[in-house]
Amino acid sequence: MKLGAVLLFALALLTVIPGSSIAWEPSKPIEFVVPAGTGGGADQMARLIAGLADKHKLSPRPLIVVNKSGGAGAEGFLDVKGKKGEAHTIIITLSNLFTTPLHNNLPFNWRDYTPIARLALDEFILWVNSETPYKTAKEYLAAVKDKQCKERQGGQCLMGGTGSAQEDQILTIQLEQAIAGAKFTYVPFKGGGEVCVNLVGKHVDSTVNNPIECASHWKAGRVRPLAVFDTARLTVAEWKDIPTVKEALGVDVSYLMLRGIFGAPGMPKEAVDWYVAFLRKVGETPEWKKYMDDGALKPAFAAGAEYVKWVEENERLHKDLMGKGGLLKK
């Protein structure tokens, strides 16, 4: 019976005999792990890559997106960690590559994985509801300091963000530490889209959403961007007029979120080379470029030593920021 099954499987798969063995090429479907839920920024990007690979025939075998969002992404990271030497498993990372293990003392670290490439960096913007009188970040933070958020208990302003001890909260704490006397009450939500809608509905007073999460509400005149958490202004058309935090408040608070790809531990060198070339090709498609522009993402392709160096620095930065904010595991 087993033999019968073998024969039938073989028959069904005749079309997919692996190609030549000169350079490495995927010989089976690539498992593309997303350590976040369906519909979020990382998930969107992963599915876009999978779709573009299919549309432009960039990969001989399909990429299969698998969401493993449990434990703030720990489920996905730990799963990939267990696949030593596997050339057909990659993972898209966001800041939870750093924050999750630091906050909960979980046994994984970016050094466990094979760095492949940094695709882009995501920006953060300080938003308020457009019906509030605050036209500048300075006005808003003055209100925060003086506890002027009238609808709230004790005038304490509410800052909405995604998750706890993750990038949004880190940014909030950074802002509090930079501006003496400013204190927010941080309200965690499940996803970025939900956060911005709660701002539109005036359930929170401000958010630090990624540009794309609030873009449509901004265009509809419901929310107002006050400052970009970056050292320079955004370069994409309509986002150009938003001042940086430095310009608006005179303090240095910046944060960029990694959108990068890692491979399973100990992935063969030839496979890494293939993925780097593959992702480079994805980056050149018009659809990818449009996606980057629409989301005001910062194109920042990097691979090899450059990528590793950046990740190293960022890990140090997160440890530092989270330590200051009291978010490290005690």
């Binding site: 369906t38 449509s216 509400h217 629409d294």
Partner: peptide, 26 residues
């Protein structure tokens, strides 16, 4: 509003963005 009412809608929302549409009030 650009917020998904269900997990399925969340994925569709991603689709809208990839197709170059900006879900939301406009």
């Amino acid at each position: 509003l650009g917020i998904p009412g269900s997990p399925t809608a969340a994925v569709m929302l991603g689709g809208l963005i990839i197709w170059g549409l900006q879900p939301g009030p406009l």
